[in-house]
Design a protein around this nucleic acid. Structure first.
Lengths: 332, 332
DNA sequence: TCATGTGACTAGAACGATCTAAATGCCCTG
DNA sequence: CAGGGCATTTAGATCGTTCTAGTCACATGA
């Protein structure tokens, strides 16, 4: 049907408007140095021709791409929320976002290479799994901001949520409701699992309580398995590694004939979409994705535009009490 | 610490290897016309310097980017599955993927512009919401493949799943189990809601059954609401618009003291991760995301590389029977 | 009157690659 | 030994921009 016609360039616009290429360039990027009347004439010509600047050529020359690379895991709903917020914050700062998905068959390094190829001026990596050394190697090329993980060495920026404080709040919440027999279903080898685990241990011990921890993971299945292994001495409250695990856990408890929160209180982590579902109403620790995303974008931009050294930002999470936590039954 | 050093270019590699720019170019893109020994020497020099071709410059000249733009909605788990599969298929065909997220605050058009700016040679849009005319406008610039939606006009390619057939299978499955009072909780204004609705009506009528349809939507809440409104005359089986709606529906039925599938069978649509969760085990109609994604990538590549006209591919879904559908209770 | 300043505009060189066409060797054939 | 054929290599133009360093016309102040 319509042939794939060559797209118009600066030269075409210049000819149409009867001016030089350079002047069109000035007008198109809104730089000062063109008379009002001429400016208008050029803009008209450009619109007439349907001109749109070729970003490749533009960037090639200017070396500024105004592009931030963001890697996330497909399948992590929490990451999706961060992506949303990052888009908003980036565009507010005049940057565009290049998204890179990490999947099972596609290693993180591959995704990062692609993001760099697109011309990202900085990288924001959600829960990166690379070693500090590998991250540092990339950090030598562009600023790198690690999101949700902070043990990344001195050359990489990080924006994370205070896991210790989050777990402390969780324990505090449950204890203040009257719980004493609290267990933690941990995240296994997942990022952040270790700090949460040790935070739980420390916090419980400090209160003179037994810090019972059982193996879990990041998915519903893990929560279920953990729940099923709970039989013998059922606690009155459980702090799950995250919301998805908490959901599986609740399902397992239900199957065992227990009511949540009447018999057992369950607390999630992430305050994800799942937690907010009307039929779930999971109490959870919120890391506030929008805030974290904004902070990460801020740092990335600051690093690009200024000459600040890498830094580590830690934000304090907060507790969102919903329907899955309550005081323990009198006999509990 | 380490200065942000200028990245090495072809010229640097050429000097290091003692050959011309052109030859390095030949070697770097694996083109024929370089002696084996020289090729090796150049590659060594490149690795030594940490050279990586500047894609902007490369693309500026070659006009081939080997890049496919893919837009998806953050927050749609089903889309994430497609993204996964598309990555695999694209890289198998030697293409890279540029991801663009569509969120509430970021209109589809904006995302598409960004994908084009990255230099996408074709666009794959998952459930696009733009009008056929708008799609056609983009299709004039690059091949556009609409995924999961097929009423997109003649200039846009489409890859979709046969909604009629999917619903037909759903009805068939339930009827063969012995159900007669089947209702459909529809998808409201969501993409694909209308074809599924009318398919249900037609298929039920053809079997001489009453095609009861009640308003729903695409989310858990919608399923819940629909489920709660079911009270008076409870059917023996429900076909939900999608898995998420089905989940809400099941939750509502449970709250009403009904067992699934003993009292009511529930069938989802999409065969998403949710359906497969071990504690859910939702029977569902699978659109087979990997297959759809592969087909979309295939079409995009075919359009780019050949001179084929736009076409519409329709794939047949299949039913995955799990634990939420069974024969109705004798008294039902 | 003449240097000087200012605003509007432009020529031409980048940017870092690819591509075309031509040059350079080298071996072989007649 | 001339010249053809082939593989290898290179010079130089080119892609569509931005940027630097002007030019040009005109007004200004001493």
């Amino acid at each position: 049907m319509s042939e794939q016609q060559r797209r118009p360039t600066l030269v075409d616009v210049a000819q149409a408007a009867g001016v030089s290429r350079a002047l069109v360039s000035i007008v198109m990027r809104g730089a000062p140095g063109a008379a009002v009347a001429t400016r208008q004439r050029v803009l008209d010509a450009a619109r007439e021709l349907g001109y749109r600047p070729d970003s490749r050529a533009r960037l090639l020359r200017s070396t500024r791409t105004k592009l931030l690379g963001l890697s996330f895991s497909t399948g992590h709903a929490f990451h999706a929320e961060i992506v949303d917020a990052a888009y908003a914050e980036a565009s507010a700062k005049g940057y565009e976002l290049a998204l890179g998905g990490v999947t099972s068959g596609r290693p993180e390094a591959r995704t990062i290479e692609a993001l760099l190829d697109f011309g990202s001026e900085a990288l924001i990596l959600i829960s990166p799994t690379l070693s500090s050394d590998e991250l540092a190697r990339y950090a030598g090329q562009v600023p790198v901001v690690s999101l949700l993980r902070n043990d990344v060495g001195e050359l990489t920026d990080s924006v994370s949520s205070d896991d210790y404080e989050g777990i402390r709040m969780a324990v505090e919440h449950l204890v203040s409701l009257g719980h004493r027999r609290i267990i933690h279903v941990d995240g296994g080898t997942a990022v952040s699992a270790e700090p949460r685990r040790s935070a739980f241990r420390a916090e419980m011990e400090q209160r003179g309580l037994e810090p019972a921890i059982i193996a879990g993971g990041a998915m519903e299945e893990d929560g279920m398995t953990a729940g099923n292994s709970l039989g013998p001495d059922m606690p009155t409250a459980v702090i799950a590694f995250n919301d998805r695990s908490a959901l599986g856990l609740i399902e397992s408890l239900r199957a065992q004939g227990l009511r949540v929160p009447a018999d057992v209180s369950v607390l999630g982590y992430d305050d994800s979409q799942f937690a907010r579902l009307s039929y779930v109403q999971l109490s959870s620790i919120s890391q506030d994705a929008p805030l974290l995303a904004a902070a990460a974008v801020d740092r990335a931009v600051a690093r690009i535009e200024g000459t600040q050294p890498p830094g580590h930002v830690v934000r304090t999470p907060h507790l969102v009490a919903r329907r899955t936590t309550a005081a323990p039954a009198p006999g509990g």
